[in-house]
């Protein structure tokens, strides 16, 4: 499971970083979203990976760590709010400039 998990994480981060470095705000937005998914998974792993177990019950140990899940919940809410704000901001930039290039200007010959 660890191998699969870390491979998925690496793929998400790679895709996220690539998209964030693109010149269009739309791709940047998608990239940031992918990165926030990746980081949530990473937080989940930071408490140790344990399949099929439930925390905070009278099951015998080993128990999975419940704290990372609380952290992830907070992180999801925050990144949701930030993404919403960034989308509105990007729409405003498009309305003002007519395009969504991150530098605020179209380059010549640029796509």
């Amino acid at each position: 499971m660890e191998t699969l998990f870390s491979a998925a994480l690496g793929l998400l981060v790679a895709a996220g970083v690539y998209l964030t470095l693109r010149p269009r705000l739309f791709s940047v937005l998608l990239g940031l979203t992918l990165l926030s998914y990746a980081v949530n998974l990473f937080l989940l792993a930071s408490g140790g990976l344990l399949a099929g177990r439930v925390p905070l019950t009278d099951q015998p140990p080993p128990w999975p760590d419940p704290l990372p899940q609380a952290l992830i919940l907070t992180a999801i809410v925050i990144s949701f709010g930030m993404t919403a704000f960034l989308i509105v901001l990007a729409l405003r930039a498009v309305a003002e400039k007519g395009h969504d290039h991150v530098e605020g200007r179209e380059e010549e010959g640029g796509r």
């Binding site: 980081v39 949530n40 937080l43 792993a45 990372p68």
Partner: peptide, 11 residues
């Protein structure tokens, strides 16, 4: 994002 990764590492 990096802050959260750092938090994960430290935790």
């Amino acid at each position: 994002t990096l802050f959260l990764v750092a938090v994960g590492c430290i935790y």
